[in-house]
């Protein structure tokens, strides 16, 4: 390593100070008010959560027509569900679904700027934006998935989807076996954020919580 990438010890506080100063200036100039950022954050944190994605996946599992529409026109399908207002905003119009099935496993990454389908999955986990994760997932997705504990048959095709500003992918994972008697609500509770990124599979209810 050279000093070229040396990490100044005060970098953390420098970025923090920049953000604070910028927000204060924008408020002073009247571009935003002192509550604008909190309102937007509050909306994201209360309404744009993986609960939306869970409901969408569960509906797709019980309703073939919905599943077909979801694969072809995700925003139109999502609009049919009773989800929070504003789902179409915040880049929601660019959401697209890819569907796991026999012999096909989908993995979503963003190699450039960590685009993420916020309205469906909430904000991304921190590691999703790590360049090592992104680089490796793009180059050797099968090895990465194995390390993450996703067992794939040799003949299962791995499709890697690179999100961009204009296509924010999420995965419709396969419905686990042994869930025939579950309600849509119970099914939704099985779906994890990781499974909708494609770095996990949905476990049947009998094994949920038993892998600690």
């Amino acid at each position: 390593m050279t000093d070229q990438f040396a990490y100044p010890s005060d970098r953390e506080s420098a970025s923090a100070a920049k953000v604070q100063a910028l927000e204060a200036l924008l408020i002073e100039k009247g571009v935003i008010t002192s509550t604008t950022v909190d309102k937007v954050l509050g909306y994201f944190e209360s309404e744009m959560t993986p609960l939306n994605g869970q409901k969408i996946v569960a509906r797709a599992w019980v309703d073939e027509e919905f599943a077909a529409l979801l694969a072809n026109d995700a925003p139109a399908a999502i609009a049919q569900l009773d989800l929070p207002d504003g789902m179409a905003g915040a880049e929601g119009e660019h959401i697209a679904a890819v569907v796991n099935g026999p012999g096909v496993h989908n993995l979503v990454i963003c190699t450039l700027c960590s685009c993420f389908p916020w309205p469906v999955l909430g904000l991304p986990p921190y590691w999703y934006k790590d360049p090592v994760f992104r680089a490796r997932a793009a180059r050797e997705p099968r090895a990465v998935l194995t390390e993450l504990g996703v067992p794939l048959e040799e003949d299962t095709e791995v499709r890697v989807w690179d999100s961009s500003g204009h296509s924010r992918w999420f995965v419709v994972p396969s419905r686990p076996e042994g869930t025939d008697g579950l309600t849509e609500e119970q099914l939704a509770a099985l779906v994890t954020t990781e499974s909708m990124i494609g770095v996990a599979v949905v476990e049947p209810p009998a094994t949920v919580g038993s892998n600690a």
Partner: peptide, 29 residues
């Protein structure tokens, strides 16, 4: 692979509050 990818898939979305403010500010504008 980054350790957190393997060991903890449920890391907090933001590690510091200034990151959260920066996110909110960019989205709000």
């Amino acid at each position: 692979l980054h350790d957190s990818c393997v060991t903890d898939a449920n890391q907090p979305v933001f590690q510091e509050d200034w990151q959260r403010r920066a996110f909110g500010l960019a989205v709000a504008l």
